[in-house]
Structures are given as C-alpha cells and as structure tokens.
C-alpha cells in the first residue's frame, strides 16, 4: 500500500498490530482520526496510554483493577470473601459477573496447563492461589474452567497441590445448555447430564 505520508504509515502499522485488524481497516481508522479535531485525537491517545500505564492487576486475584486490590476483593460486606471462583482469564470474570448470580471472589490463573503449548504450572498463578486458600482459610473453591482435558488437568493439579484441606472444592455444572434441545445435544453431554441428574427442588429456583 502506497501512502503519501510516513506519519500516516506509522499510525496504520500500529493499528494493524491489533487483533482482527488488517491493513485496510487500519487505514480506515487512521483516516477517520485524521478527520477529527486534534484535541479529540489527543484525548483518544492519552486515554489509551493512561489505561495501559495505570491499570493494575489485583495483587490478590490478578483481576483488572484501578487500585492495588480490586473492587471485588475489597468489598468485604457484599462479597463472600471465603468463596473463590477459579477462572482461566479476565474474559471469564466478565462473563460470570454479567450473570449477577455470583457473590464470591475470583482467582485468575492467566491460562491453563498445557505443556504442548509450553504452559506449565509455573507460568500460571497457581502458587498464589494455593497460599491464598491456606492463609485466608477459604471455605470453597469453585472451578469455572472450560470442560475439556486441559481444564481437568488443571483442576486435578491444583487439587493435588492443595493437599489435605478443609476447603470444599467444586466445579460448575456440566450438561444440557439452557434453552437447548435434547435431540441435538451431543451424546457425551447428554450422558453426563443423566449421570449427574438433579433433584427437582434444587433445579427449580
């Protein structure tokens, strides 16, 4: 792509580094910015760089935060601080928060154990989780990891690392999705749903 300005080219190259953005989309975005007032664009740039500079990761749960300890971890009245939900990444925190059904805290692992992809337990926030459970005398650890082999590996590993503890270890339910149709559910899921069936009084709530 031939561009009339080196400055323009640099900006396009930067945008094109973002996920899902190609050269042409990048150019469109840059040209859009060029049409705007200088102040507005400065504000845009500052917002981004301020975000990157000042956002912190909660030292307790690794969630995104504006302070050293995130708003969920510091909310001792509305949140059950002795319940920890273990998730793979921050996107999962956002997904669970949107349900408005969970009132405990989180622990973001930052990935999942998979030596094939070069991710071992040392690359993840597992040590901090173990010490957190021991120090805080956590009552329950709820695993909300993807239901696949690597997810299982990670759960078993952490459970093993925890050793003997009074902390209850649970995992999110696996089965037929809400609003789904039995006919089209795959057999594994359906079989599991039948094995782990629920008493109605627990279901209708």
């Amino acid at each position: 792509m031939q561009l009339p300005s080196q400055l323009l080219e640099n900006a396009v190259a930067e945008f094109a580094k973002l996920p899902g953005i190609g050269k042409k989309t990048a150019l469109r975005l840059v040209l859009h910015l060029l049409k705007q007032e200088v102040d507005e664009v400065s504000h845009f740039g500052e917002t981004i760089s301020k975000m990157r500079k000042e956002v912190q990761f909660c030292k307790r749960c690794s969630n995104i935060s504006d302070t050293q300890v995130c708003s969920i971890c510091s909310n001792t009245t509305g949140r059950n601080q002795q319940l920890i939900c273990v998730v793979e990444n921050i996107r999962d925190v956002i997904a669970i928060e949107s349900t408005q059904q969970y009132n405990g805290t989180y622990h973001v692992l930052g990935g999942i154990i998979s030596p094939l992809d070069g991710v071992g337990p040392d690359q993840l926030n597992i040590e901090t989780l173990i010490s957190r459970v021991k120090e805080e005398e956590t009552k329950e650890l709820l695993f909300a990891l993807n239901p696949n082999i690597q997810g299982d590996t990670t759960i078993y590993y952490i459970q093993r690392k925890l050793g003997q503890t009074n902390c209850k270890v649970t995992t999110i339910a696996r089965g037929i999705s809400f609003g789904g149709e039995l006919e089209y559910a795959d057999e594994m899921t359906l079989a599991r749903s039948i094995t782990n069936r629920l008493p109605i009084e627990q279901y209708v709530r």
């Binding site: 154990i113 998979s114 030596p115 094939l116 070069g118 071992g120 337990p121 040392d122 082999i149 690597q150 590996t153 078993y156 590993y157 093993r160 690392k161």
Partner: peptide, 22 residues
C-alpha cells in the same frame, strides 16, 4: 501432553512430579 512434559523436563533438568502424576 505427558510426552511434551517429559521432553521439557529433560531440557530443564527437573520435572514437575505432581503434574506428571496428574
């Protein structure tokens, strides 16, 4: 995954025993 762990362990000189047993 297990084979991959064994390979990495050989490169690094030590193995994560808990992960191996999982």
């Amino acid at each position: 995954q297990r084979n991959s762990l064994l390979k990495q362990a050989a490169d690094q000189g030590n193995i994560n025993e808990e992960l191996l047993s999982v």
